[in-house]
Deep mutational scan, measured.
Amino acid sequence: NQASVVANQLIPINTALTLVAMRSEVVTPVGIPAEDIPRLVSMQVNRAVPLGTTLMPDMVKGYA
């Protein structure tokens, strides 16, 4: 099972992602792969992401 990126805190809309804001977890459905965490740092989310939410490619500006 592949680990996905999960919000480690509430991430407000247009907030730049940080290492502290993300964690890796095996979840269903699978979201952005955990190995992409370094690439996600400083990218912005295009919606509010609640704690525990799996990050999907369409939630991160410039990711997809």
Results as ranks from 00 to 15, higher is better:
37 I>Q: 01
30 V>P: 15
18 T>N: 06
59 M>L: 03
63 Y>L: 05
4 S>H: 02
37 I>F: 02
1 N>L: 15
30 V>I: 13
26 V>C: 07
33 P>F: 08
22 M>G: 01
11 I>C: 03
23 R>P: 02
21 A>H: 15
36 D>V: 08
42 S>I: 04
42 S>V: 04
3 A>Y: 12
48 A>K: 12
37 I>L: 11
45 V>W: 00
35 E>K: 14
44 Q>L: 15
5 V>H: 00
19 L>H: 07
3 A>K: 10
22 M>S: 02
11 I>H: 03
42 S>T: 13
62 G>I: 03
51 L>V: 15
3 A>N: 08
17 L>H: 02
5 V>Q: 01
17 L>P: 03
41 V>T: 05
43 M>N: 04
19 L>Q: 07
9 Q>T: 10
5 V>C: 06
48 A>G: 09
58 D>C: 09
59 M>H: 07
31 G>W: 03
61 K>Q: 12
20 V>K: 15
13 I>S: 12
44 Q>G: 05
9 Q>A: 12
6 V>K: 01
34 A>G: 08
40 L>E: 01
39 R>G: 08
20 V>L: 12
22 M>K: 00
13 I>L: 11
10 L>T: 11
60 V>I: 14
17 L>K: 00
23 R>K: 10
64 A>C: 11
13 I>G: 08
25 E>S: 10
21 A>E: 04
8 N>K: 07
17 L>G: 00
41 V>N: 04
52 G>F: 04
26 V>E: 09
14 N>K: 05
10 L>G: 09
18 T>F: 05
29 P>K: 04
48 A>I: 11
34 A>P: 05
23 R>D: 04
34 A>L: 03
8 N>W: 05
25 E>R: 10
20 V>Y: 13
48 A>M: 14
19 L>A: 08
56 M>Y: 07
49 V>A: 03
53 T>V: 13
42 S>N: 15
31 G>M: 02
58 D>G: 11
26 V>N: 09
9 Q>G: 05
44 Q>N: 09
51 L>E: 15
4 S>D: 02
56 M>T: 10
36 D>I: 07
33 P>A: 06
36 D>L: 12
60 V>C: 04
42 S>A: 09
42 S>M: 12
16 A>Y: 14
46 N>W: 08
9 Q>S: 08
58 D>R: 09
51 L>A: 15
32 I>K: 02
28 T>Q: 13
25 E>Q: 12
26 V>G: 03
44 Q>M: 14
55 L>W: 00
24 S>Y: 07
3 A>F: 12
56 M>W: 04
41 V>K: 02
35 E>Y: 12
23 R>C: 06
53 T>A: 13
60 V>L: 08
43 M>H: 09
52 G>R: 01
11 I>W: 01
34 A>F: 05
15 T>P: 01
22 M>L: 12
21 A>C: 09
11 I>P: 01
29 P>N: 03
1 N>Q: 13
35 E>W: 14
13 I>K: 15
9 Q>L: 11
49 V>I: 15
12 P>I: 06
64 A>N: 14
32 I>P: 01
6 V>T: 04
63 Y>W: 13
43 M>Q: 06
32 I>G: 00
60 V>R: 00
47 R>Q: 14
5 V>W: 00
50 P>N: 12
52 G>W: 03
58 D>E: 12
50 P>T: 11
9 Q>W: 09
63 Y>S: 05
56 M>I: 07
44 Q>R: 15
11 I>A: 02
32 I>Q: 02
50 P>F: 09
54 T>I: 08
63 Y>F: 09
21 A>N: 15
26 V>R: 10
54 T>Q: 01
42 S>K: 11
39 R>K: 14
35 E>V: 13
45 V>Y: 00
40 L>M: 04
54 T>S: 02
62 G>S: 08
1 N>A: 15
41 V>E: 05
23 R>S: 07
4 S>W: 01
2 Q>K: 14
4 S>I: 03
56 M>F: 11
26 V>S: 08
53 T>F: 10
18 T>M: 07
9 Q>K: 13
5 V>S: 00
7 A>G: 00
61 K>P: 10
37 I>R: 06
25 E>P: 00
49 V>F: 03
56 M>E: 06
61 K>F: 11
24 S>I: 11
5 V>G: 01
10 L>H: 14
37 I>N: 00
17 L>R: 00
18 T>L: 06
44 Q>S: 12
37 I>Y: 03
11 I>K: 00
36 D>M: 12
31 G>D: 00
23 R>T: 07
46 N>T: 14
17 L>Y: 00
44 Q>V: 15
55 L>T: 00
62 G>Q: 08
22 M>F: 04
3 A>R: 12
41 V>R: 00
39 R>N: 10
6 V>Q: 03
2 Q>S: 11
26 V>P: 05
14 N>A: 07
25 E>T: 08
31 G>V: 02
48 A>L: 15
60 V>G: 02
14 N>Y: 11
48 A>W: 13
59 M>R: 00
14 N>C: 08
38 P>N: 11
38 P>G: 11
28 T>F: 15
13 I>R: 12
1 N>W: 14
28 T>G: 05
32 I>F: 02
55 L>F: 06
21 A>P: 02
14 N>Q: 06
10 L>D: 15
54 T>P: 05
2 Q>F: 13
62 G>M: 08
24 S>D: 06
16 A>D: 07
39 R>V: 10
15 T>Q: 10
5 V>T: 05
24 S>Q: 10
50 P>D: 12
42 S>H: 13
22 M>A: 00
25 E>K: 10
58 D>V: 08
17 L>V: 01
20 V>F: 14
48 A>S: 15
43 M>D: 04
29 P>H: 04
24 S>E: 08
53 T>E: 11
63 Y>I: 02
38 P>C: 09
59 M>N: 03
5 V>A: 08
60 V>N: 02
51 L>C: 10
38 P>D: 11
57 P>D: 05
16 A>T: 11
54 T>R: 00
64 A>F: 15
35 E>G: 13
14 N>G: 13
21 A>S: 15
6 V>R: 01
1 N>I: 14
40 L>Q: 01
61 K>C: 09
54 T>W: 03
40 L>S: 00
51 L>R: 15
6 V>L: 06
13 I>A: 15
10 L>S: 13
38 P>R: 10
39 R>L: 13
18 T>C: 06
24 S>F: 07
43 M>A: 06
49 V>T: 03
37 I>V: 04
32 I>E: 00
57 P>Q: 07
45 V>E: 02
45 V>L: 08
10 L>V: 11
40 L>C: 04
16 A>M: 14
43 M>F: 09
4 S>R: 01
29 P>T: 04
45 V>P: 03
26 V>H: 14
18 T>G: 05
54 T>L: 04
13 I>P: 12
55 L>A: 03
13 I>W: 08
16 A>E: 14
10 L>N: 15
44 Q>K: 13
1 N>E: 13
45 V>K: 00
23 R>Y: 05
50 P>L: 12
64 A>E: 12
57 P>Y: 08
47 R>W: 06
41 V>I: 15
52 G>C: 04
51 L>W: 08
57 P>N: 04
6 V>W: 03
37 I>D: 02
52 G>E: 04
20 V>C: 08
49 V>C: 06
8 N>Q: 08
28 T>I: 13
63 Y>D: 03
44 Q>I: 15
36 D>G: 04
64 A>H: 14
62 G>P: 04
2 Q>R: 15
23 R>E: 04
52 G>Y: 03
53 T>W: 11
52 G>D: 09
46 N>M: 10
9 Q>V: 11
6 V>S: 03
15 T>F: 13
34 A>N: 05
8 N>F: 04
56 M>D: 03
5 V>Y: 01
22 M>C: 04
21 A>K: 09
49 V>W: 04
11 I>D: 01
2 Q>E: 09
1 N>R: 11
31 G>Q: 00
27 V>W: 03
21 A>D: 14
48 A>P: 11
17 L>C: 04
36 D>P: 00
28 T>Y: 14
42 S>D: 13
57 P>H: 07
7 A>C: 05
23 R>M: 05
36 D>Y: 13
25 E>C: 08
47 R>H: 06
23 R>I: 07
28 T>H: 15
54 T>H: 03
27 V>H: 02
64 A>S: 15
22 M>V: 06
49 V>L: 08
15 T>S: 13
56 M>L: 10
30 V>K: 14
28 T>L: 12
14 N>E: 07
8 N>E: 05
48 A>H: 14
29 P>S: 04
8 N>D: 08
33 P>K: 07
45 V>A: 04
40 L>R: 00
32 I>S: 02
31 G>K: 04
46 N>Y: 07
15 T>L: 05
35 E>F: 14
35 E>R: 14
51 L>P: 15
64 A>Y: 12
50 P>R: 10
25 E>D: 10
63 Y>T: 01
11 I>V: 07
1 N>K: 14
26 V>Y: 13
52 G>T: 01
1 N>D: 14
62 G>H: 09
15 T>G: 11
25 E>H: 08
61 K>V: 15
57 P>L: 05
20 V>H: 13
56 M>R: 08
24 S>C: 08
60 V>F: 03
12 P>Y: 06
20 V>S: 15
